[in-house]
Write a protein that binds this DNA or RNA. Sequence first.
DNA 1: CCTCCACAGGAACTGATGGCGT
DNA 2: ACGCCATCAGTTCCTGTGGAGG
Length: 400
Amino acid sequence: MSDPIDDLLDAAESGKSIIKNRDILHFTYIPDIILHRKTEQEQVTQSLLPILKKSRPSNLLVYGKPGTGKTLVVKKVLSKIQERVEKSNFPIKLVYSNSKEETTLYGLLVSLGRQLDLKEKELPTTGLAISEVFKRLLNKIDEGKLNAIFVIDEIDYLAQLVAKTGKDILYQLTRANERLTQGSLTLVGISNDLTFKEKLDPRVISSLGEEEIVFTNYDVEQIKKILEERINESFIENSVQEPALNLIAALAGGEHGDARRAIDLLRVAGELAERQQSDKVTIDHVREASQKMEENKEEKSLKSFPLHEKLVLIAIMKANGSSTGEIYSLYKNLCKTVGKDELTQRRITQMLSEIELSGLISGRLIHQGIHGRTKKFKLTISSEMIKKTFKEDLTLQDIV
DNA sequence: CCTCCACAGGAACTGATGGCGT
DNA sequence: ACGCCATCAGTTCCTGTGGAGG
């Protein structure tokens, strides 16, 4: 009788691994993506060239779907420029920030400030007026005679935040140079949404969109090529079967050519194969990997929901495919049994559309004539998944 | 052809939290 | 000590609407 623990340890010790270099299997580690983005690299460089001539370049806007390597290319070009300029008396201060990671306008400005070496004391994480934070940023640039380049990733999110708060920070950012006497500020915006420009203030468009570069989607062939290169570097020879490769490319490339997803898929499939002590990555490994990634995502977002969202989800689960009203009364019952105050229906409607946005449920608007208008929701994930995940939650244990 | 249902979903507001400058 | 500011979750009030049934 073999001991499963021993088996695993034996396998690990014998060191038969089909992956020879793990690092290459992360999207950002080897920007071989760059190889496939020659023209775009040139374009980015071209439009930033004035920096080398010590004049301020135009603001730049970069578009492209997720996983097209736009951020990588921009970062690479900028760091090269920085390297080259470092020793001159015209050093560049590179500041990168991702609007999606910062949930608030304030947070974003602070993260920019931190990278300009503004300490806690000079720029507290809360308490100030937005305009005050902005003033301090500009002061720092001016006093330090900095030539700053702000790279703002997912700038469409920033635009949304700005719209919500009614501040015109984007406009002020693009025109900051008019207020600076010693330093300079260049803005590089990166956006997933090709239509986002239309939603902006025309004054912002005219200065931010001075230069525009679009990263087109990878097609399946290109994805395959990228994958092949990485497989050569990171796997033992012939360990990834051709059909498996094709499936990865099809899964990830099919919709919008997401190279990041393709590479993640390859890595997870590889790890799965390895764990099962297979010496080949097969089409089944890929399928399994795809499913596993999907489930992980679901579980993670399920866990991150606040209590009332979880209650709503349970209500939906108990009455799959029912209307907002039904879900709401079920939710109220659940609240009673766990002894929590119920929220208003308005709030629940909003939660429902938030959950819908996360993809765990899908809603369909239907008109029932005299019986009014409702949205019917159903789960897009299995109810087992919900049960399994919420079992761990003490307050929810009894009702799932 | 009109009515009226059962909500959708926008807007403005509230109250709490946390931290600033003066 | 005080007023001010940003943010968040939630509330209050509201207007809008496709079509079954009269």
